[in-house]
Design a protein around this nucleic acid. Sequence first.
DNA 1: TGAATAGTGTCTTTCAGACAGTATTGG
DNA 2: CCAATACTGTCTGAAAGACACTATTCA
Lengths: 240, 240
Amino acid sequence: MNENSRKAGRGLDFPRPLTTVDIVIFAIRDDALQVLLVQRGQGEGEPFPGAYALPGGFVDVDRDRDLEACARRKLKDKTGVVSPYLEQLGSWGSATRDPRGWSATHAYFALLPASVADAALAPDAQWFPLISGKVKPKLAFDHGEILQTAVQRLRSKVEYTSLPAYLMPPEFTLPELQRTFEIVLDRPLEKSAFRTRMLSADLIEPIDKMRKGPNRPAQLYRLKPAKAPVYFARTFNPPE
Amino acid sequence: MNENSRKAGRGLDFPRPLTTVDIVIFAIRDDALQVLLVQRGQGEGEPFPGAYALPGGFVDVDRDRDLEACARRKLKDKTGVVSPYLEQLGSWGSATRDPRGWSATHAYFALLPASVADAALAPDAQWFPLISGKVKPKLAFDHGEILQTAVQRLRSKVEYTSLPAYLMPPEFTLPELQRTFEIVLDRPLEKSAFRTRMLSADLIEPIDKMRKGPNRPAQLYRLKPAKAPVYFARTFNPPE
DNA sequence: TGAATAGTGTCTTTCAGACAGTATTGG
DNA sequence: CCAATACTGTCTGAAAGACACTATTCA
């Protein structure tokens, strides 16, 4: 008799790990990639009191239909944003990551347009810029590791997808889009190759409007409606 | 007071989801991509009795230090294999995927070299070929969906990484490696481009041995020791 | 007019695609 | 020698890299 049938045999009354969902929420603010963190409470029995952590918390089996709904609920609680780009990042579970016992978290990452990043922020939430892939405060639990993974994932996907488009406001110019790519990748990109790639990707469309400035105005674009991220056949710079 | 501090306030005595780990185990057998399935028991209270499912089961908070250890334990139970390529695939959790209650599974996928795929198979485990990304029996739970995701992930990573190398026996020829890529991608690849890519990837090295046959012998290669998968700057065929 | 940024064109490089051609074995 | 498969070479094309050049605004 194997382990599972043994467990089934005595019903389901064996210990269960704690189940949580955490979200790494990115946005471009002040010309930098930033991530949203919340400060943990100081109450009795709270692990890592006062420390910063990724937004998240326990799955509520009565309110959450599934993991993604749980992630969206927490995202809305903290930011007011209803439907940004949301992707599952992975899961982290071990006996030791939470002092309260064996726990597993399902981590998501979200990309917010700059325009909505500050609209309805929860009072305990705060943006932190990423300096060379890290954030200043030491994070609670294994959230530092989760954040690292999220940054890596974002960076590597940006090499060959159009993900940063989801960080843009509804209307943007090509140079602005390029700047967003450069902020995420933390390296400069070649202008003409960038333009060629974006325009041939069938991802954005020009609108009948220009961005005025102290110099030549720039064509404004918008994301084509309901566009899934585009996958390019090559990365940007053959990473050495 | 938000939901989490409320929960913390009354301790940890709120209902917890069931937590499981499932593994999609791939190997090349009979010139096809195959996946390992187990038949579920018929005992009292067993969901999906007799149906085929991915190998997996509940996390055992006493035996499993973390999720990956749990996956490795189950992998070893079913195949005897100790350290194949193992990667996290994602997690699936909802109120309805398991009739026993709210449950979340952490899914992994593993690549087994053909040489060990049959060595120490559990009696309830069985290989099934993938026909255009699907397997014949209807799977228990949401395992059909998980399998689909695993096949997609494997295919898309094969476009720009060296993953199929982990499906090879210790010694193999370049044509054999190419055949493995072709089986996974389900399309033919160009010989010279394939060879150039593999040889310039610093991934494999020739050994002082040839594969004899009824025709010109082929150089045998082996994986360079402790090689992480290689990422290529381009995909194989610009996916139209 | 000049500064500044938007946008284009041109040349080079890299590497996959196509495919022909050579190499080396057994029968 | 022939069949069969291993392996190499050569040409082409697509897209990126580098970078110069033109365009359009405001001051």
